[in-house]
Simulated scan of single mutants.
Amino acid sequence: MGELSVRSVLVTGANRGIGLRLVQHLLALSNPPEWVFAGCRDPKGQRAQELQKLASKHPNLVIIPLEVTDPASIKAAAASVGERLKGSGLNLLINNAGIVRANTLDNETLKDMAEVYMTNTTAPLLLCQAFLPLLKKAAQGSPGSGMSCSKAAIINISSCSGSIKELYLWEGVQAVSYRCSKAALNMLTRCQSMGYRENGILCVTFNPGWVQTDMGKAGGHMPPVTVDASAAGMLKVLSKLSEKDSGSFLDWEGNVVPW
């Protein structure tokens, strides 16, 4: 199996970190997607400058205004993507946007718990609902049987922090709301894999590793995985996924992560 081959992909939270690097690696493929949609809260803002530069060089990259916690923004983004695709459907939805609050059990708050859960768990649910017609259309319009990311897939970017069994780095960063939101995202992925199986849509949740992003460094330690290695690794794994992987929790190297 070679590198990922997909006609259209949407990445949320694409203006920095893992999202931006995924977009860069997708554009650098020997057979890049016909359409790469980069969801970004403020496309013309300071934090989106690198994404803007990329878009000026790659006509197949379209920056989509997207606030993932706003249902109206999600609906508008789905309509915009649908117009560009002209009836062909969306092959790959990567729910990457996420936030973290480094709160402990003792100082966790209702506000932070609600905001983190909304962005990390509820937003991927709403996005999948909004883009489901386009994902179904892609699955129906793709030749062959079985599932793959080239046909139709939902990829939810989770975290090793969401593993209930591992409780990775608990002594360093408790981040209770973040851990709970990612564990819930894992369950959402399982539910989606069951609910969308008959539509031929592959659903997988990913641990991208402890990555050297602003979020990854939030606890004051230098993570071991570079952003480039994580993004390239995940795209390599995506190229190999099939129906047997739907509903699974994998890391950026393709290993199964314990729930």
Rank of each mutant, 00 (worst) to 15 (best):
A218T: 06
L167D: 13
L92K: 04
A130Y: 03
A14K: 01
G254I: 08
I157P: 01
L132C: 09
D214H: 12
C40P: 01
S73L: 08
A138M: 03
A229E: 15
D245E: 14
T121V: 00
C160S: 15
I201T: 03
S5W: 02
S230I: 11
S73I: 10
S30L: 08
D228C: 04
G209Q: 09
S248A: 07
K86E: 15
L26P: 06
K111W: 10
Y196N: 03
T12V: 08
G89Q: 07
P71F: 02
C160V: 14
L85G: 05
E253S: 11
K75G: 10
V9A: 12
S8N: 13
E253D: 12
N103R: 06
C180H: 12
I18W: 06
M118H: 13
Y178I: 00
Q192T: 07
V204E: 02
F206A: 08
S193L: 03
G146M: 00
S161A: 15
G200H: 07
A175L: 02
A14C: 08
L66Q: 04
V257P: 05
P143N: 09
G89V: 01
A38H: 07
G195K: 04
F206H: 02
S230T: 11
F37V: 00
L51H: 03
Q52E: 09
G216V: 03
N120R: 02
L26I: 02
L27K: 03
A130W: 06
L241A: 05
P133Q: 05
G220S: 10
M147P: 00
G87K: 10
Q174S: 10
W35T: 09
A79K: 13
L169N: 12
K75F: 03
S242C: 06
L127W: 06
L22P: 01
R16V: 00
P223A: 07
E171I: 07
A229M: 14
D106C: 10
M222F: 10
R7D: 14
L126V: 02
L22T: 07
W210H: 13
L169E: 11
A152H: 06
E67W: 06
A184R: 12
V225P: 02
V9T: 05
K136S: 11
C149L: 05
P224H: 06
G144W: 00
D251E: 08
Y168P: 00
A77D: 08
K137E: 14
Q24W: 07
G220V: 02
S230E: 06
D70Y: 05
